[in-house]
Every structure is written in C-alpha cells, then in structure tokens.
Amino acid sequence: MVDIIVLVKQMHDLEQIKPDPSTGEPMLEKSPFKMETISENAVEAAVQLKEKYGGKVTALLFGNSDAGQIMKKAYAMGCDDGYVITEYTGNNHFYTSQVLAEKIKTIKHDLILLGNQSADSVTGMLAGRLSAILGEPVLGNAVSIEIEGEDAKIKRVLEKNNYYVKTHLPAIISVTQEINEPRLPPVMRIMQAGRKPINSEKTTVQEIKNFTVVSNKAPISERKKLIFEDVDKGIEEVVKVIKEEMR
C-alpha cells in the first residue's frame, strides 16, 4: 500500500497563446486553462503506482476558478480524492511551495509526486523547495519508480549519466515527461468524475512576491518567411543560401 499526493498545476494552453499584435504581450484571456502537461505524467505515474501496490491517490491543485475542470480530469484519470486551494494568482514558486506544503502537512502520505519542470514556467524549483520545507527527501527526474518495502527506488535521468537511486519513504519524486503516456479516460470515468465533489479551500499563507515583471512580450520574429510550394524552385533558392553561408 502506498498513499500518494500528486501535485497538479494549471496552465494556459500554450498552443493557443497568441501575442497581441500591437503590444507583443500574450493574450491570456483568450487561452483557456488546462492541466499542465507534465502534471498529467505525474497523475498517470501516481495512478499506475496505486494500481500496482494499492493505496490512495490524492490530487492537490493550487488554482483559480477554472480549477474544477482540471481536478475532474485528475479524477477521471484515477485520482481518489482532490483538494483545490483557490485564489492562485500566477507563477510564483516561492509562494506556491509554501501554500502546497501547508496543505500537504495535513494529508497522510508515503509519496508526493510532481512534474520535474512545468511546461509553462519551467522553473524546476518545487521539488527542492518542498523537500526543505517538509523535510522529505527528493528522488528527482524519474523515468521509472518502484516501491520496495519502506523504500522508493527510481531510475534518475541526468544530462550525462543515469542512476538508480533510492531513499526511505515518505519521499518526493519528480517525474519527466518520458515516464509514461498519460491515459485518455473512458467516457464512463469522465461522467463519474463530473459528479464527484471537489473540496475547495483557501490558504492561510500570506502571499509574498519577490519579483516585479518589467515586461513580458513575444520576441519579435524577423524571419523572411519565404515559403516555396514549388519544391524545385525552393531547392534552388535554399542551395544558393546554404552555399553562401558555407563560404
């Protein structure tokens, strides 16, 4: 048996974010929120561990008013229980780690699973911060996870070598997007998930923000965008360009 808390992040659908043509700033209001992609891998990993070892999976999401839909997806994928901490105001790993830690302390668990670096802000800060705040060890960047008695063991992927590493439970494990292919839940599960209540609550942690955004704009693309549908003509042009640069 292994009881797992899986951390789920919400993010804007990155594919749908377009810059405002006049300011270059992202038009976020036109891009709906969805479950952050590596959070999906973390949920899948948690549910697979439950299926293998038994236990309970609790999803934890710091979100805003759209978070209910994202939590329902976590339910449909197989999470047993879920908490939404409301009033998320955006990426701030310092504050988010404090908010999540406060709630985690109240939930019995053997493992905390999360994505290694979220697809939108990519900071990779949460595992280390939660480890220090909660006093639980991290096994980071896992592409496989096994539980052996009181220990968790992972295959850890680093830039130059891979390692098999282990630690005692309770522990925090961050996963990479290669660990699995998140399941598409069947319609029945989605309907059942829709009826399942969502626990929402506010945090008592005071927001601290240590940064000020000066500007946030799409870089200006100065590409020529000469696109050839006539392949032979395209090849001729491209060969000229490459030869020029090879000189």
Partner: peptide, 19 residues
Amino acid sequence: TVLGREVAGHLSVGIGSDV
C-alpha cells in the same frame, strides 16, 4: 541542470531567499 535546480530550490529555503 537537473541536479542544479534541485540544489537551488533546497538551498533557497535554507537561506530564506527566493530563486
């Protein structure tokens, strides 16, 4: 790097700073 980010997050709590 993978390890560097873990170190940074952990250390930031230890010295009471943001990253």
